[in-house]
């Protein structure tokens, strides 16, 4: 009877240990947040070139992550990329209509993300509005091309 008891204690400790390890992997390693469904609002923006932007790329304001890209579609009318992003609820009604969105790169070879810069208008963007002022991704090859053309002109 005593032996069975100790076996049960051992198994219990083992399972607890395993579950703690799984929770560690979830929270500490993958950075999963439990409040996944925090309230948000969406904005859209059209870019002529999105470079390496992907769904789940981050959206930043002054370097602070304020949202994620949720969807990227090709607009077949203007042949532009239509990017939908979901931002924190508390920013709704605070971003002016002349807010600009540009696609930036983290480091020289890092991932692409969207950087927002707030403008000066008094009217504000509401849920579902489109950001007019956009700046496409910097494609390194284009930049090198321009540099070479400029340097041969001189």
């Amino acid at each position: 009877m005593r032996k069975q008891h100790w076996i049960e204690v051992g198994v219990g400790a083992f399972m607890l240990f395993g579950i703690v390890a799984l929770i560690f992997l979830a929270l500490r390693v993958s950075g999963l947040t439990l409040d996944r469904n925090e309230p948000s609002f969406t904005l859209t923006a059209s870019f002529s070139n999105i470079g390496g932007l992907k769904p789940r790329s981050k959206v930043t304001l002054a370097g602070v992550v304020v949202g994620r890209v949720t969807d990227i579609q090709l607009d077949t009318k203007w042949y532009e990329a239509k990017v939908t992003m979901s931002l924190e609820q508390k920013l709704e009604g605070l971003l002016s209509t002349d807010t600009s969105a540009s696609i930036l790169t983290a480091g020289l070879l890092g991932e692409n993300y969207i950087g927002l810069t707030v403008g000066a208008e008094t009217d504000v963007l509401e849920d579902g509005d489109e950001i007019r002022d956009t700046q496409s991704a910097l494609v390194l090859e284009d930049l090198i091309n321009k540099f070479l053309i400029n340097s041969t002109k001189d």
């Binding site: 399972m15 240990f17 395993g18 390890a21 799984l22 560690f24 992997l25 390693v29």
Partner: peptide, 16 residues
Amino acid sequence: FVAMPLLTAIFAAVGI
């Protein structure tokens, strides 16, 4: 069936 995933989670956590 039960022990293997738990051992794997422990392995990964300890390795990290």
